[in-house]
Simulated assay, not measured.
Amino acid sequence: MHSKSTLALAIGAACAVLAGAAGAQTRVELYGSVDAGVSYVNNARGNGQTLVDSGNRSPDRFGIRGSEDLGGGYQALFGIESGFSLDTGAQKNPNKLFQRRTFVGLSGPIGTVSLGHMPDFMYDYLRFQSNGIMGSAYFFHPGNLDNQANQFQIDNAVRYETPVMRGFKFGAMVGAGEQPESSVKGRHYSLGAQYASGPLKANLAYTKSRDRAFNLGATLGLPSVLGQALSSDPSAVDAKYANFNADRVTSFGATGSYTIGRFTPHAMVSSVKLETRAGAETQRNVELGTDYALTPADTLGVSVATSKFGEVRWDQFNVINMYRFSKRTTLYGAVAFQKAKNGVAVIQGLAPSSTDKQVVSRIGLHHLF
Rank of each mutant, 00 (worst) to 15 (best):
G333L: 12
N131G: 13
Q151G: 15
F263G: 03
S307F: 08
A21Y: 06
Y323S: 05
V335D: 01
R248Y: 07
R65T: 12
S354M: 06
A305H: 04
R328H: 10
L51F: 09
Y74R: 07
Y189M: 11
F140E: 10
S190F: 03
Y323C: 03
R61C: 00
A229C: 01
N47A: 15
N342V: 04
Q148R: 14
G171Q: 06
T207E: 14
Y138K: 04
P109Y: 10
L226G: 02
A76C: 08
V174P: 00
G253I: 08
L204S: 01
S231R: 02
S197V: 06
G289K: 01
V302S: 08
Y195C: 10
P94R: 09
V225F: 09
V113T: 12
I80T: 11
A19M: 11
L191N: 06
N245V: 13
S224C: 05
R65P: 02
V38A: 12
S33R: 08
A90Q: 15
Q148A: 11
I260C: 09
N245Y: 15
G72C: 05
L106Q: 04
A239F: 07
A137V: 02
F62W: 15
S307T: 13
V286Q: 06
G253S: 12
S67Y: 03
G177K: 02
G349S: 05
V335W: 10
P142Q: 08
Y31N: 12
E178K: 12
I110L: 13
F62A: 03
R262G: 03
T26Q: 09
S190C: 04
S326V: 12
A22D: 12
V319L: 15
A172V: 12
V38Q: 05
L7D: 14
G171A: 08
S130Y: 07
A10W: 06
R45H: 14
T299P: 01
G135P: 02
D356C: 05
S303K: 01
H367D: 04
L350M: 12
V225W: 07
T102H: 00
T355G: 13
L331A: 12
N245L: 13
Q49I: 04
L7P: 00
F325R: 05
D120C: 00
A229G: 10
I110E: 06
R212Q: 15
